[in-house]
């Protein structure tokens, strides 16, 4: 794992994308810091992070799009597929290298509250727990990006897929308030999910019958649930939307609440997508 980690980190630092991503992020941090903390004289650095959180939608896929897609295209994946290392080591090595890269701008962000504290009182504990949450938010986004990079050999597809997923997650709160009116939206969403699951099954198992079966079973289940307990669908809908919203977890920290479940939630998302990535790579041996 150490070997992969070192190589990946060195490759990121040699390449352009990493530095550009860091620069963009720090530039935006600078602007928001000037606007919120300096001009409006608010001591909360969290607002700056909240302001720039949308940039993760583009930065994370840019950092992760190459990680597995490019190796597959160049066939360099054969090196570690045939070396005496496990795929978990490979995946985690790559992931931790990306986290290290992402930690660079976060480390710079950690300096801002110290600067502010020279001129007034800054709620340090609150600020740093928010920064930590932001780092975990990025970690979850990066994990999702690595996963999408592992399922394709085209960087562009990896970028776009990750960006779309993160975008939906970012907009989730807005979508939620938009769709609480009834269970129609829930039905629509669950149908779409069933369709997506069916398509995924079709793609992964290369069997249309299986995909269609997955879709049909899920639709039947949905119809049953709607028929017998119509309230259940909209409740489930709400909680599903909640669960898909990465960014709202972070926003909770802005009110000054320390939300341990949010940490666990973000960590779980990161771990889950790393697990998926290993499974995708392992599956490739069996294709």
């Amino acid at each position: 794992m150490k070997a992969i980690y070192k190589r990946e980190l060195a490759a990121h630092l040699r390449g352009l994308i990493g530095w550009v991503a860091i620069a963009v992020m720090l530039f935006l941090v600078g602007i928001y810091f000037t606007a919120y903390n300096l001009q409006s004289q608010i001591p909360y650095f969290g607002y700056v992070l909240s302001g720039i959180s949308f940039v993760l939608i583009f930065i994370c896929p840019a950092l992760t799009m190459r990680s597995f897609a490019e190796e597959r295209r160049q066939r360099t994946d054969q090196l570690w597929m045939t070396a005496p290392v496990s795929l978990t080591e490979v995946t985690l090595g790559k992931y931790f290298a990306l986290l290290t890269l992402f930690a660079i701008p976060i480390a710079v962000c950690c300096l801002y509250p110290l600067v502010l504290s020279q001129f007034g009182t800054v709620p340090m504990l609150e600020t740093y727990s928010t920064i930590a949450a932001f780092f975990l938010l990025g970690a979850a986004c990066i994990s999702i990006g690595v996963f999408f990079s592992s399922i394709t050999e085209n960087q562009v597809i990896a970028f776009v897929a990750t960006a779309i997923v993160l975008m939906v997650s970012y907009l989730m709160e807005g979508l939620k308030s938009f769709a609480t009116s009834g269970s129609q939206a829930g039905l629509l969403l669950f149908s779409a999910a069933a369709l997506a699951a069916g398509a995924l099954a079709w793609y992964l198992a290369k069997s249309f019958v299986l995909g269609a079966a997955v879709f049909t079973v899920m639709e039947l289940f949905l119809a049953g649930a709607t028929f017998f307990r119509s309230g259940a669908v909209s409740t489930a809908f709400d909680s599903v939307l909640d669960a898909l919203s990465l960014f709202s977890r972070f926003n909770g920290f802005l009110n000054g609440t320390f939300d341990l479940t949010a940490y666990f939630y973000l960590l779980s998302v990161a771990a889950l997508f790393q697990f998926f990535t290993v499974q995708v790579l392992e599956k490739r041996r069996w294709s």
Partner: peptide, 21 residues
Amino acid sequence: PPLYVDMKVREYLDFVAQLRK
């Protein structure tokens, strides 16, 4: 050959040596 073209030969061989433990 599974070569990382952004590496120097020595770095690459060192990486392989680490991979092979």
